[in-house]
Write a protein that binds this DNA or RNA. Structure first.
Lengths: 217, 217, 217, 217
DNA sequence: CATGAATGAGTGTTCATTCAT
DNA sequence: GATGAATGAACACTCATTCAT
């Protein structure tokens, strides 16, 4: 019989991950000591090691959470009437989220994880798994758009999907270095580009979305 | 009077940086010990500390070198007859270089530095300085292109420059995680996109370049 | 009134000691964690601490049990018709028991306890108490043998008793390091030595015992 | 080129081993912290780890030294005119050394190592290697004594060698638990037993040795 | 100028023990 | 009485940096 509820266990887990996220976001993974996570989480070292076997496992858990979140965002964006609209929704969803300071903190940790992936095969696998899903989904959207004529550009759908992801990752980097960098002008460029690269009929709806985003900011 | 020639000093410096680059590329900055750099450079700890005051200073020097290199590439690309052609040349120069395994190793270290920039104001300044130049140059190209009508897209030139950089950085990341990722299909997409986002007259020359790149691969 | 029966309490105690013995035998006292004893005993940490105030107290209890057992073996062997026969019986009883794998496991823990006695005055007292009884008994046997002429060797009875114990402890050590070491050849040497060190009349009965031991093996 | 002489390096090594031996002798291997060895050796943690890769390696080095020492003692004792005299010399050399307080301290650590051998295959190998040599040498002595008629007891030479070793190890244990235990009475018993177990001619010389030992004490 | 032995503060992690439930 | 989640002091070991030679 469990002594405490599953909810309590889950809440402890989140407590640790939240503390770690904050520390990692500020100082990076390697400069954050377990002691700092201990302090910030108001737990003891032993308690933390009851939930995570190592510091690296905390990073992995954070990476995992990110990708679960991204899958959700992606799934939500995929219910679009046509591929072109789907691309716009994805772009808006991912870039738009960067207006939220908390999301930006998470993305800063994401940048650390990107670097960590170069060293740790385990984390690299997690990162790739997080990218492969979106890439396949975007590639499929583009393929469908090309087939139906909505997308006029005759390019490799997979490479085009990579470009979409690069536009997002690249901006995450720039915003990580310039915390006050506004999302909107960048989003406008991305939307305009998507718009221009698709067949003409889509243009109007894009401008509407763009204005809406400006209003939100 | 200096006891040893400036050339000797410079050669020692390069010896250290080369050793460090190799270590960092393999294991990342934090997992690389000074002892490893000592071993690989065939120098002593004391010798290394004569050239660099700290491990971090080695990272800074590497970051510095990168940006000097980028400025050169950028300068070479800027002597283009028209802005659109300039953009294409920049894209080809930066992305094309990623076909070289050595450049890829350097870029892997670049990814580490990007992450490190989140933590160290000094490195962040270096990274931003390395980005700001290209961004300004690209922004100016786009502005001139818009003014002359070569570039039809009515978007914020600075944000558009950011997108260009993001397309590059984002691909660097993806290639860091997938070392065998080919540059060509991606470059083709970027060129096609540039082509499409510019006024029609530029189209032909783009296709020529694209075919040439394919032939190279 | 006690809530649970004394039998239940005693059974719990034995459950813990058995689990501890197995762990200690495998990995030694210091490398065995309470958690491992918890797992093997199918109890909870709290439950174990209700029966033993500390890990060390478990070791003490095991040492205690050992000595109670030895006292029994010794008492059984003391009912011999003459001192010489008594010595032989003691040797056979203690060494012969080492044919049993379980006894060997217990002796392995005994070796740990011997080492632990160097550090802990409490355990040292237990070990000495366990040795002093046999030593006095053996010494008395030898003294009586010398007085009655059965034992011809004119040596210090106490030192001779120590030698008997050393012959046993020393073999326990060797068997601990070489688990497959057979008892019989060693027992034969000890019996032959006892035989030779006693006056002649005892010889015949010794040979009978020796043959019996060989038959058992 | 080495920066310091090999002698200096060796002296540092001995400094560490001496400090460790003292700590281990007092508190045992597991209760001794590296910090204590650091303090007692007047070195820094880093310095110690330059000479020994781990705490366990220090134990191994101590075990190694012991066996080298034992080989020497054994070799010296083997140059005896006849096997029986050889046995006596070995007994006197090994037991006699226990009169020295420093040797006793080393033997206390030896007891720790005996226990540690049950857990660590590496240390077990060292211990066995240290025992196998003497056992073979003693066995050979006994075999030769039996062949030449000096040793009258018709027993397995290997088992008899084990008994000799057990007489020594067993006494080391008893002295470890009773630091003031005198060697002489025990040595007298051992010598008398050797004497009695050999053919008569040897008796006289043994008594002389025994008296000499008494005089020394 | 170069060396490399030495430093020592700091690291991630463990585990005997406790106590609220 | 029993539980097992939590504690936190302690541990072995690392590594950027220094400085006597």
């Amino acid at each position: 019989v469990p002594k405490v509820s599953a909810a309590h266990l889950e809440s402890r887990r989140r407590q640790i991950l939240a503390a770690a996220l904050e520390c990692f976001s500020r100082q990076g993974f390697h400069r954050t000591t377990m002691q700092e996570i201990v302090l910030r989480s108001n737990l003891s070292p032993g308690a933390i090691y009851r939930y995570f076997a190592s510091k690296e496992e905390i990073v992995q858990a954070i990476a995992d959470e990110r990708h679960a979140h991204e899958r959700e965002v992606l799934a939500a964006a995929q219910g679009a009437p046509d591929p072109a609209e789907g691309l716009r929704r994805v772009a808006t969803a991912f870039l738009g989220a960067l207006d939220d300071p908390e999301e930006r903190a998470r993305r800063r940790v994401g940048v650390q994880i990107w670097a960590e992936a170069l060293r740790s095969p385990r984390i690299r696998r997690l990162v790739r798994r997080g990218i492969d899903g979106p890439r396949a989904a975007l590639g499929e959207l583009i393929r469908r758009g090309q087939a139906s004529g909505t997308i006029a550009l005759p390019v490799d759908p997979d490479a085009a999907a990579r470009a979409m992801i690069a536009l997002f990752h690249g901006f995450v980097l720039q915003q990580a270095w310039e915390p006050n960098l506004a999302v909107h002008p960048y989003l406008a460029v991305v939307e305009a580009a998507i718009d221009r690269l698709l067949a003409q009929p889509a243009s109007r709806s894009l401008r509407r979305r763009s204005r809406a985003a400006k209003a939100r900011a």
